[in-house]
Computed example of a mutant assay.
Amino acid sequence: MISKYRNGEISSGQSYIMIISMMVGTGILGLARSAAAISQQDAWISVLLNGLSIGFMVGLIIFVISKFPNCTFFQYTSFLLSKPIAYVIVCLYGFYAVLTTSVIIRLLCELIGTWFLPKTPLFVISFIIVLTLIYITKDGLTSVGRFNEIVVFSIIPFIFLMFPSLSQASLLNLRPVGGSGFTNIIKGVIPSFYAFAGYEVLLLIYPYISNKNKNNLKYSVVSIIFVTLLYTSMVASQIALFGYQEIADILYTFIHYLDVLDFPIIERIEIFFTFFWTFSVLGTLTIQYIAGCIAFQSILKVKKINTFVYFLAPIVFILSLLPQNSVKVVSISEIIGKANIGFGFVLPILLLLMYILKGKRVNHEKGM
Rank of each mutant, 00 (worst) to 15 (best):
I10M: 14
Q14H: 01
M18Y: 03
I19Q: 13
M22L: 10
M22Q: 15
M23D: 06
G25I: 10
G25S: 10
T26Y: 01
D42G: 01
D42L: 00
I45A: 05
L48A: 15
N50I: 00
N50V: 03
F68Q: 12
P69Y: 02
P69V: 01
F73M: 11
F74D: 05
Q75E: 15
Q75C: 06
S78K: 09
L80W: 03
K83L: 03
P84L: 08
V88Y: 06
L92T: 12
Y93C: 01
Y93L: 13
Y93F: 15
Y96E: 05
A97D: 00
L99F: 13
L99R: 04
T101S: 15
T101G: 07
T101L: 11
S102R: 04
R106S: 05
L108A: 10
C109D: 15
C109S: 14
L111T: 11
G113P: 03
F116A: 12
L117D: 03
T120S: 07
L122E: 14
F123D: 13
I128A: 15
I129L: 14
L131V: 12
L133H: 05
Y135D: 05
T142N: 11
V144K: 06
G145P: 04
F147N: 05
E149Q: 11
V151C: 10
V152F: 07
F153L: 08
I156Y: 12
L161V: 00
L161T: 01
S167P: 03
L171H: 01
V177C: 08
V177N: 06
T183K: 12
T183H: 09
N184Y: 03
I185G: 07
I185T: 02
G188P: 05
F193A: 04
G198A: 02
Y206A: 06
Y206T: 07
N215M: 10
L217V: 08
K218E: 07
Y219H: 14
I225Y: 03
I225P: 06
L230I: 05
Y231P: 10
T232G: 03
M234D: 05
S237M: 09
G243Q: 12
A248K: 14
L251K: 14
Y252V: 01
F254S: 05
H256N: 14
D259V: 02
L261E: 13
L261H: 09
F263E: 09
I265A: 12
I266C: 09
E267A: 08
E270V: 04
I271G: 06
F273S: 12
T274V: 10
G283K: 07
G283P: 11
I287K: 09
Q288A: 14
Y289I: 05
Y289D: 13
I294S: 09
Q297N: 10
I299Y: 08
L300G: 06
F308S: 10
L312S: 05
A313K: 10
S331C: 00
S331A: 09
S331K: 07
I332W: 05
N340G: 15
N340Q: 11
F343C: 04
V346E: 07
V346F: 12
L347V: 02
L347P: 09
I349G: 11
L351W: 03
I356V: 12
K358D: 06
K358R: 09
R361V: 03
H364W: 04
E365N: 11
G367D: 12
M368V: 07
